[in-house]
Simulated assay, not measured.
Amino acid sequence: MASHYETLGVSADASGEEIKKAYRKLARKLHPDVNTGPEAADQFKAVSHAYEVLSDAEKRRNYDATGNENGNGAQGGFGGGGGFGGFGDIFDQFFGGSGGSAGPRSRTEPGRDALVRIQISLEDTVKGTVYPLELRTAVICPLCEGSCCEPGSHPATCDVCRGAGHVQRPVRSILGQMMTLAECPACQGYGTTLPKPCPECQGAGRVADQLEKQLKIPAGVSSGTRIHLAGGGEAGPGGGPQGDLYVEIDVERHPVFEREGNDLKAVLTVPLTAAALGTDVTLETFDGEQTVSIKPGSESGDAVRLEDLGVPRLRGNGRGDLVVEVRVATPRNLDDAQRELLEKLAELRGETFTEGKFEQRGLMSRLRDKLRG
C-alpha cells in the first residue's frame, strides 16, 4: 500500500506548501466533476485523505512516527475518535465551532442586488419617460434551469463525507486532543458532487446575459432618486432567487431652466425700453409657448410666476410653478443720436449730469428755478 507521501507524489521531508501544491494539482485532475474515469473517484479519495493527514501537523508527526496518523493512542482514550469526540462537539457548540448539527451547504444561494446609474433630461422629469435599460447580469441557466447538472443527470452523494458536507479532524487544545469539523475537500461542503456538470453553465446554475428592459420613470424624479425593481438583480448560484435592481437617476443640466424644489426657474433678459414701457415676451417651455407679461417699470430681479408649469410632485398631486426672473439689459455702444435721445429723456425726468456726476433735481429745486425766471 502506497504511503501518503507517495500518493501525493512528494518526498517525506516536503514542506507544507509543497504538500498543498501537490494536492491542488491532483485534486483538479481527479475531481469527480471533471474526471469521470472508473478509478478517478477512488484515487481522489486517497489523495484527499493523504492531504488531510499530512496537512495536519499532529497527524503528520504521528504518521511519521508510527505509520498511523492517530499515533499509539488511536484506538481509544482521549486520542481517538471515541469518547472524547462527543465532548469535542459540545465544546464546539459553546465556543462557536461547527457543532454536531452542522450540515452540508446548499448550492442554491440568493443572487446579489445590482445598482445602475442612468442619465435623463430635465424634460423627462417634467413629463416622465420610458428608458431603454440595458443590463449585463447573471440569469438562470436556460439549459439546466438552475440544477447545475447536465439534463437527465443528478448530483451524487459525496463518497468522502457521505453527504455530510464536512469531515472530522482532531486538533490539539489546552484540554488535549479534540475533534472539530472542517469543510469536506472533496465536495467543498455541498455533500454532493456533480458527475455530469451542465456544459452551458459549468455547474454554476447561472450564466451571464445581456438584458433589455423598458424602465418606466415617473414624472417628478430628481438626481439621486432610486427606482427599486424587486427581482431585477442577479440570479443566484444554483438557480437561486434573483436579487433586486436599483436604478439611480441623474438629471442633465438644462441650458434655459433650472429646478428648485418642484419649481422651474428661468432668466429672461429684456431691453431697457421694454422693461420701462412693459411688454409681452413669448417663452418656449416644456408645455409649449407661454406668454410672459413684463409690467411697465420692471427692474432686474423682478419675477413673473406662471402657475402649474413646474415639475409634478413625485408623491402627491399638482405641479410646481415656472418662475421667470427679469434681467434688464443696459444699452451699450450708443451712437450720437441714441445718446442725444437718452440725454433728452434724462432732462425731461429731471435727471442731469454735471461734470460726469449724476444729479436728480427734485420738485422744489425746479420750482425755485421757475420763480427766478
Score class of each variant (00 low, 15 high):
Arg206Gln: 05
Asp89Gly: 13
Met179Val: 14
Ala156Cys: 01
Asp13Gln: 14
Val311Thr: 04
Pro104Ile: 07
Phe87Tyr: 12
Gln93His: 03
Val256Cys: 05
Pro185Trp: 07
Ala337Thr: 07
Met1Gly: 14
Gly9Leu: 11
Arg226Leu: 03
Pro110Gly: 15
Val207His: 01
Ala303Trp: 12
Lys127Cys: 04
Phe353Leu: 10
Pro197Ile: 00
Phe78Thr: 13
Gly297Tyr: 10
Gln75Arg: 08
Gly318Lys: 12
Ala102His: 15
Val10Cys: 03
His49Gly: 02
Leu211Trp: 10
Gly301Lys: 04
Asp56Trp: 04
Lys25Glu: 11
Ser293Leu: 10
Arg206Val: 04
Leu268Cys: 05
Lys20Ala: 15
Pro185Lys: 05
Ser121Arg: 05
Leu342Ile: 09
Ala266Glu: 03
Thr282Pro: 02
Glu258Lys: 07
Val292Leu: 02
Arg313His: 08
Ala27Trp: 03
Val34Thr: 07
Glu260Asp: 14
Glu200Pro: 07
Leu309Thr: 00
Lys265Tyr: 11
Gly146Lys: 01
Asp42Ser: 13
Gly79Leu: 15
Asn68Met: 12
Glu248Asp: 08
Asp335Ser: 12
Gln119Ala: 13
Met178Ile: 06
Met179Gly: 15
Arg28Glu: 02
Gln214Ser: 03
Ala275Tyr: 11
Thr279Ala: 14
Ile120Leu: 03
Gly77Tyr: 11
Pro185Cys: 05
Thr193Met: 01
Leu309Phe: 07
Leu306Glu: 07
Gly261Arg: 14
Pro237Lys: 07
Arg60Thr: 06
Gly189Glu: 01
Glu347Ala: 15
His49Ala: 06
Glu145Ala: 10
Glu284Asp: 15
Val221Ile: 04
Gly224Arg: 11
Asn317Tyr: 13
Glu58Cys: 06
Val311Lys: 06
Val53Thr: 09
Gln338Glu: 15
Leu245Arg: 09
Glu200Thr: 13
Asp92Cys: 02
Pro104Asp: 09
Ser48Asp: 11
Cys161Pro: 01
Lys25Asn: 15
Glu150Trp: 00
Arg206Pro: 05
Leu8Lys: 02
Pro255Tyr: 12
Gly240Met: 08
Lys295Ser: 15
Arg319Phe: 14
Gly16Gln: 12
Thr66Leu: 12
Thr352Ile: 10
Thr108Met: 07
Gly236Val: 04
Thr192Met: 00
Arg206Cys: 02
Glu351Pro: 07
Ile19Ala: 12
Glu18Arg: 04
Val167Glu: 10
Ala337Cys: 09
Glu58Asp: 11
Ser121Met: 00
Pro104Gly: 07
Asp250Tyr: 14
Val323Met: 10
Ser3Phe: 08
Lys265Val: 12
Asp263Trp: 02
Glu284Trp: 06
Thr330Glu: 08
Asp42Pro: 01
Lys20Trp: 13
Thr291His: 06
Met1Cys: 15
Phe87Ile: 10
Arg361Leu: 04
Arg259Tyr: 01
Tyr63Ile: 07
Val160Met: 15
Thr225Asn: 11
Glu355Met: 04
Gly100Ala: 08
